[in-house]
């Protein structure tokens, strides 16, 4: 797999205080990479260093083989980004805003602008002044701006901030499509963990300027062999004690829940049938990303 972005022991100090204490990780072609961390962990600082808004104190960032320290234009030219809220020139129309950015890259034709505007679904309003836009429309315009020059790496800092559920779903769709169809790599930072879970292939967790973990999202959430199962049953008929003692189960209003390995499920089922207890359903209660995240960052 081709590496699109590579951070090499990146450090950043502001006024002598270390903010980022040596980050190293790679982002591959065509993956959606999540960037997680509590507030003040250094997410935004890291993203600002990748896009060139902040200087690196030590180490290097390489984008498509080009070092941001040595070849700024070459490296940054491969990136499209929205850093926090996409602020646009409000006194210009959406189209005029896009023209501003198109002029700063080489060889962007009018057709390309129109194509991008259609992709983000803003064709109707593109010639209206931006101050008439809703937040969702500004987000779309921000996305359009970041896609004009066909970047290899798309960086979105809090992309779903202030979007309604439909808007979030749409953005998620766009990102997946761009990653799958055009092989674009996407870095997403967000504090909406459930969103990250739906969007990302891999996630990195940072805390206090240090990388804690980089993992595939599925491994991360389903790391444990033991999962939590919820049994929906009728009257347990006096077998509560047996469940508590043998399986360490929690008795619920309409059943019970246990933390067991997969192979144990039929064992319990057989016993329940033997005891003549009615079973209406069994479900897994996976640990959510949120629970895992809190677990990892707790110490």
């Amino acid at each position: 797999m081709k590496t699109v972005l590579s951070l090499k022991n990146v450090k950043k100090s502001i006024k002598g205080k270390p903010i980022i204490k040596g980050l190293s990780f790679d982002v591959h072609e065509g993956e959606v990479f999540g960037f997680l961390g509590p507030n003040g962990a250094g997410k935004t600082t890291t993203i600002r260093m990748i896009v060139g808004l902040m200087k690196i104190s030590e180490g290097d960032i390489v984008i498509c083989g080009k070092s941001i320290a040595k070849d700024f234009a070459g490296a940054v030219g491969k990136i499209g980004a929205i850093v926090e809220n996409p602020e646009m020139y409000k006194f210009l129309t959406g189209y005029q805003n896009l023209l501003q950015y198109a002029r700063m890259h080489k060889g962007i034709q009018k057709e390309k602008i129109i194509e991008v505007v259609e992709l983000v679904g803003l064709s109707d309003k593109i010639h209206d002044k931006v101050h008439t836009y809703s937040l969702g429309m500004r987000q779309r315009l921000g996305l359009a701006q970041s896609l004009l020059h066909d970047p290899k790496l798309l960086i979105l800092d809090e992309p779903t901030n202030g979007l309604d559920p439909a808007g979030i779903r749409e953005i998620r769709g766009h990102l997946r499509k761009l990653a799958r169809e055009q092989g674009m790599s996407v870095i997403v930072s967000s504090h909406l963990l459930s969103e990250m879970e739906l969007m990302c292939d891999r996630i990195a967790i940072i805390q206090n300027g240090e990388l804690i973990d980089v993992q595939n999202i599925n491994d991360f959430v389903h790391q444990d062999k033991v999962s939590s199962y919820v049994f929906e049953t009728g009257n347990l008929g006096g077998k509560e004690q047996w469940l508590r003692d043998k399986w360490d189960a929690k008795i619920l209003d309409d059943g019970f829940s246990v933390d067991i390995a997969r192979e144990q499920v039929p064992v319990i089922l057989r016993s329940l049938i033997e005891y003549d207890i009615e079973i209406f359903g069994i479900g897994t209660a996976n640990k959510t990303l949120e629970e895992r995240f809190l677990e990892v960052t707790a110490n």
Partner: peptide
């Protein structure tokens, strides 16, 4: 922010 992330 959008002005300074260009290859210029």
């Amino acid at each position: 922010k959008l002005l300074l992330i260009r290859p210029t």
